[in-house]
């Protein structure tokens, strides 16, 4: 929701970035305030996923210019784990499998790192078990998932639900969902989107990156940005998604060519 005079959570100015010497972001600007849901759409290769990974601190990308201010601090100076502890969360398009490590141990390690950062006492297995029960309900997840190895043998939908479970545990200020809808059937999509909506408050914000309009029927954005060739070229409200769905991205490219 758009809230009057709410705090700016993320401010990106003229961001440029390279991977392996190839420029991917070419002057990206974006401002996200508390309470808002933003969506970034755009064709493959436009730089959407790169942007999400840069915000989370992936080492493969080099920022060459511009700035990213998160809650008043220079986000780019922080290590990835510190960003996560400060409330930046990235739900991965392809979550990692970690054989031999139970989901419950992994989630507890993750949550305790957050608690340590906040100066809180770490939770033992029993307290963590209590804590996690209502979080499981948010993503309609069976507790038996906790004793299985992280994402190992999970279906596509289960992996994405596990991502949202991690989000529910880390309770981020800025949640970035990178193509969370890819590979989901309609039931899984409903559960995942429902989880994101339940976690949304006036104090936090979400950035939803998607290729398709479908997800935005479930997570209603306040703003839709269209990304093309490393920049945001158009911003609109939720109706823009329908227009894009109908016309595709090509008309924008043509329009941009005319403007250039």
């Amino acid at each position: 929701m758009i809230v009057e005079n709410s705090e700016v959570i993320l401010s990106v100015k003229d961001l440029t970035a390279d991977v392996d010497g190839v420029q991917i972001l070419k002057g990206l600007n974006l401002e996200i305030k508390a309470g808002e849901v933003h969506a970034i759409m755009g064709p493959n290769g436009s730089g959407k996923s790169t942007f999400s990974k840069i915000l989370a601190g992936h080492p493969a990308y080099t920022v060459t210019g511009g700035e990213v201010i998160y809650k008043g601090q220079n986000l780019l100076e922080l290590k990835p784990e510190v960003r996560a502890r400060e409330g930046v969360f990235l739900a991965f398009q392809y979550p990692l499998e970690i054989p031999g490590v139970t989901n419950s141990d992994f989630l507890r390690l993750s949550y305790n790192n957050l608690r340590k950062h906040k100066g809180l006492e770490e939770l033992d297995i029993i307290d963590f078990d209590d804590f996690i029960q209502d979080r499981l309900e948010i993503v309609e997840m069976n507790p038996s998932f906790l004793s299985r190895s992280v994402n190992e043998g999970f279906s596509g939908g289960e992996k994405k639900r596990n991502e949202i479970l991690q989000m529910a545990i880390l309770d981020p200020t800025l949640a970035i969902l990178d193509e969370t809808d890819s590979g989901l059937d309609i039931d899984a999509l409903r559960i995942v989107a429902g989880g994101v909506n339940k976690l949304s408050t006036p104090d936090n914000a979400s950035l939803v990156i998607t290729h398709y309009q479908r997800l935005l029927n479930y997570i209603i954005p306040d703003f839709i940005h269209v990304m093309e060739n490393g920049r945001i070229i158009l911003t609109g409200d939720k109706n823009l998604a329908l227009e894009l769905e109908e016309k595709g991205y090509d008309w924008l490219k043509e329009e941009e060519a005319v403007l250039a």
Partner: peptide
């Protein structure tokens, strides 16, 4: 990076992933 993005520092991540390799 996946583990770091879950608030786990790089050293613990290295340990955990090495352990995961051996766990099988």
């Amino acid at each position: 990076f996946y583990l770091q993005s879950r608030a786990i520092d790089a050293e613990s991540a290295t340990k955990l992933l090495t352990y995961a390799f051996a766990a099988e």
